[in-house]
Every structure is written in structure tokens, then in C-alpha cells.
Design a protein around this nucleic acid. Sequence first.
RNA 1: GCCACCGUAGCUUAGCAGGUAGAGCAGCUGAUUCGUAAUCAGCAGGUCGGGGGGUUCAAAUCCCUCCGGUGGCUCCA
Length: 673
Amino acid sequence: MTNSLVFTARPGKNYMEQIPRDVKGRAVAVMAEGKIYDLRLSPEREVEAQVVTQDSEEGIRILRHSAAHLLAQAVTELYPGALPNAGPVTEDGFYYDIFMDPISSQDLERIEERMREIASRDIPIVREVHSRQELLSIFSCNRFKLDKIRANVPEGGQSTVYRQGEFVDFCQGPHVPSTGYLKHVKLLSVASTNYLGDPSRERLIRIYGTAFPDEKSLKQYLKNREEALRRDHRRIGGEEMDLFVFNSERAPPGFPLYTPYGAAIRNELIQYMRDLNRENGWLEVSTPHIFRDTIWKQSGHYAKYRPNMYVFQLEDGDGYGVKPMNCPGHITIFERRMYSFREMPVKLCEAGTVYRYEKSGEVGGLTRPRMFTIDDGHAFLRKDQIQEEVISILRMITRTFREILGITDMKFDLSVIDREHPENYLLSYRCHSCSSVSEIRAASLQGELACPVCGSREIEPDFSAWDEATEQLRKALESLNIQYKEYPGEAAFYGPKIDVHVKDALGRYWQFSTVQLDFFMPINFDLTYVGSGGSKERVVMIHRAIYGSYERFMALLLENFAGKLPTWLSPPIQVYITPVSNSYDDYAAEVSRALSREGIRVELDTSPETVAKKIRMIRQKRPAYIVVVGERERSSGSVTVRNRKDQQNSYGLSEFISRLKEEIRERNLEQTL
RNA sequence: GCCACCGUAGCUUAGCAGGUAGAGCAGCUGAUUCGUAAUCAGCAGGUCGGGGGGUUCAAAUCCCUCCGGUGGCUCCA
């Protein structure tokens, strides 16, 4: 903060008149004694005030909230009868929910035009204080605002409205002094929502927009947004690079089909994980996609997860469920024999494809398919091995994201139990009457919660297993110096977990890795090992995934690199080869053979098109390198290579091959040629 | 699941005052044999997402229904 942002404000004149001249143009409000005030207000006594500028975090929120009012004003002017509900600020803009007839995105232009027009009139935005009675009468035509007044202004109390011309809104503010501050606005999209999120209540139209202090930053934001749309993995991977296809007439919605190009990337990712798993003691297994319903009943999936499962019955009457998770399969392998305490932990892993009937509105692209493959792993361990194993998994996670994506700033979330709602979890209950302990998930019970042994209602949840597990997770995170946040109530029904969210190049967070402790599946399946004293000891389970799913990870890959994958991961085409004309087909073929003999994925194109056209066409597929050969190359035994930065360099063929192989072997993030 | 918007050839799209589809790219054929983001010409490709219903003399165009895609869905004055 520079000094000119702080000044002494005196009573008698409003803040606007007292703001230091050099920052006046950027000011939208002032902060005094910890509170933010409109510039049109005057201090009640002499105070140290700090200017809130429109480019500060708080300032831009004020600007955007004011823009939301501007939007509401424009809409109510254009659509008589429209009733504004609420217009909060979002992370990068604002929206306003308005009760009105549905509009399409084309109508946004008209509304935006009106907003600009109102902004150019520079109408003063004035704060007024009114009694509850007055407020109710001002907004007598708007039942949504009446609800808010009744809910927020006590009987006999007062609150504020902000008025700009004909438009008045019930609002605490603060706001910019006049509509002239709001010239750099843009409406972005229209969606719908229900009042109070209740489907039985009124359907509101939600209009999204954003506002900036100046045209330049607005333009920059819109440019970034454009870039985001261009980076959409559905566009890059599905249309341009031809990696996968969705065909809802043939396969169910949300079931991706991979082309040879897409399958090659998947296989490369699978191979990477195979190596990492082996290095860390994880043994690969393979399990069926379909299990009898008995296993799903035992695992508890039928109780909780059935609506999300593909279940079916054959004519013989037996019921089956397509797996939504891999754990029962891995458990079935683990329980085939006894393990000694010396053999623990047993760590089984699999690129396991699961099928989940996700709600129709949730399905979309590779980030939310209904069929996806988890790089799944289940560790069966002794209680004393938890922390060490979690640490090992966390290391695998950080390494994977660093090596493949070059990303290091992941968000770790520790999801813990909500102690206020024990019924949502599988918990031990202790009975006060008979002192027995039983594992129950209260929400799955039909009747009253009661002791299964003596029937007493005097039972109490015992959180100790959860607390212990949670503490192990905390310690693991802390021992690696990983910053994390705790989220009560976000835990799985069977245990606490660590989820990893990764920010992509566009600043959006996606959930990928997960490490879930599970004390209860071992109880359901009675999983034990033989302890050092020869007694059966209870196994602890960890469910973990590093990528999360191959689908979502591939989406992140594509968006993160805008399709320009590192060479090792560029199996669609690592090297595209074309001769300058068909006279050099032979040499091009020779180069192609030499590369592919070395395991490099090449695509030779001897079609009789111009080089310019071929390059234009192939760029969509994003080959790592484009090799063009003609007389110069043939006579010197070399290749001319065009890299992703569109730089051209010539290399001797053998040098090119050895350096390329090196780049692939090292899994370099950057191109070296 | 609920709500809104959208759905014309593989892709991008014209047609959106209702009169039974027009283009560019890709594809194919031929010519061109070419030095790094558009060589030329020709051909073919659409029952206007699909099924059903309605309005009309007439529907890609208007209405309803089903399907799919996209965005949104406690609170946030």
C-alpha cells in the first residue's frame, strides 16, 4: 500500500471530496475502522480512512456487485414484470437471479447494450436508509425481496436500499458512486435455477456477467476465456486430435470409445503407472467387471450405492452388478488365503474400469463419464503401517503430477467425519445396557437405532476408530510438509480421506488423486491376518488412486498442454514425415523406417498434396515434430525438423534419432529439438 | 434428477417473415510434383438429431413429446 491510499477523513464532507487527488480516479469506496463505506457517505467523526481502489480485490467485488445491480436495472427496464431476486459476486464476475420468462443467449446482447447505455448516463447510485415498514412498501411488488426483508430486517429495525434512477434494490452495499463506473461490463451466459435451490419453487433465470475497471483488463479476461474454450479437452481431444468419440446411438451416454491415437496415450499413461506401482511394491491384478449381487450386499454398496449401479438379472434368476468400484474384487483376491503379519502390507493394484450411473445432468466429456478406468489400488495393512503407507502414496502422487504435467501446486483436502451427523457413517456403537459394541450405519436402518444385541436404545457412537485414522492422515501430510485443508462432513461413509485437487492451466480445480482409509470394509468381509502371537488381527484397508481416472487425467493433460503433449506422451504421432514432393517419397520412407525401427511412432504422408497444405492439416493432430525432406536432406542424409514452436532445424538422421529417443526416454516436458 | 439453452453433410455453418436445403473445409476423381498455416477443376455427401403427435393447402422453419449435447442447480439482500 502506498501512502496516498491512506488519509484522514473529517466530518462534514463526504469521502469522495476528501480522497487524495492522485488516487481519486481509481477509488470505489473507503475502509475506515475495519468497515467499508460508500464514497458518498461522510464520516461521523475524524477517522483514518483507506482508499479501496477498483483494482484491489475488495474494490473489484464492489464494482462487480454494482454491475449486478446495473444488470437488474437493464432487465427490469427491458422486461416489465421481471422480479430481481439476488445478485452476488462470483470468483470472476457476478450473476443475478431474476424471476422472468426464459431468455436465450441472444437476448444478452440487448441487455448488455442497455447496461452500457445506462452506464454512459452516469446515474448517481444513492444509499438510503429505511424502516422495515418502508422497505416492505418499496418492494411490495417483489415477493423475493419481501422474503429477504422479512428474513433479515427485524421488526422495528431498518436497513438500506440503493437507488439508481428508477431502479431500487434492497442491498447492504457498498456500491460505486454512479453507473459511470460500470462501463466495462460483459454478459457471459444464461442459466436457470430455482428459488432457494428448491425445485418446487419458482424457476429463476440466472444471468452471468463480469465487470472490470478498464477495457483492457476486460478484453484480457475475455481473451483468456476464449483460450479456455479452445483448450476444452472435448474440442482438442475429441474433434481435433481424434483421440476419442462419444456415440450415444451406439453406446450409452457417457461411455467413451478410444481411437488408436487415444488408446496409445492411455497405454503410455498405464505404462507409467505400472512402473511407478512396481517401484513402490504394488502388485498388479485383474478382476471381473461383473460380480454377483451378494458381494455388493456384503460390501454395503447395495445399501448406499445401488441407484448409481448398472444391475441386472439373468433368466436363471441370479442377480449381478457391474462394478462401480474395484475394491470388492481386490478383497476377493486378498481373502483367498491367510497372510502372516510378516507379509503385510499386501498392496494390489489394477487399471480397473468401473461403471457408474451418474445423474444425467452431471455427465459430460472425459471429466465426468459413466465408464472410466481408475488406476486403483487397495492396500491391506496392519494398523501400525498406515502412516508409512500414506506417506509413500502421497510421494507417488506428487511425483506423478510433477513428472507428467510439471505441476507442483496441488491442493490437498482432508475430508473428515461430521460429528453432528453420525448416522451418515459406518460407526461403532457402544451399548450402555449390555456393553456390546456393534458396527452400524444408522442411516441404512429401517427402524429406530437400537442395540442389535439387547435391543436397548441407550447406545452411543464411538468415534475412536475414525479419530485414530484421521490422525494418521494428518501426520502423514505434516511429515511431508504438505499444506492441506480439513473439510468436516466430506468423508466417505466408510472412512476419512485425502483428496488431491489440481489446478489446470486455466485456474480451475479438478479432483484427481484420493487416499481413503477404510476400517469398515475389513469388518464387512472379516479380513484378518495372523499376528505375531498367532491370533487373527483385523486388517486395515487403504483405497488409493494416483491419477484418479485415466479419463479425467487425460482431460487435464489435454487442457494443460493445449493438446501439445510432451513427446513421450505424443503417441498419436511423435513424428510426422512428408516429402516436399513425391520425387522424394523413397527417402521419406527410409527416414520413416529408421525411426519406427527405434520404436518411435511415425506417420508417413506421401499423398500428392502441397507441403503447406499437409502441414496445415496435420497441425490439428499436434504431432510432436514435423519432418520435411527433399533434395537437401536426401543428398546429405539429414532431416529438417519443425518443432512445436515452429522453429526449423536440420539434423543428421542418426543424431535426430538418438536425441529424440533420449527426449522420449527422459519423458521431457519440453522439446529438445 | 430438476431448470434453461442448443441440435441442418465427418467438421464449421447459410437458411430463422412457413413454399419442400445452399456454402467452405475434410473425403473421392483428375490435373499439378510443389521447401513448411489454403494449387486448380470436377464429383459425391443432408428424409434439416431421431420417433411420435399437432397447426397448415404447405414445416428445416410454429407448437407438444421423447433422445442427445452444453451450461446451471443449498446459502450468498
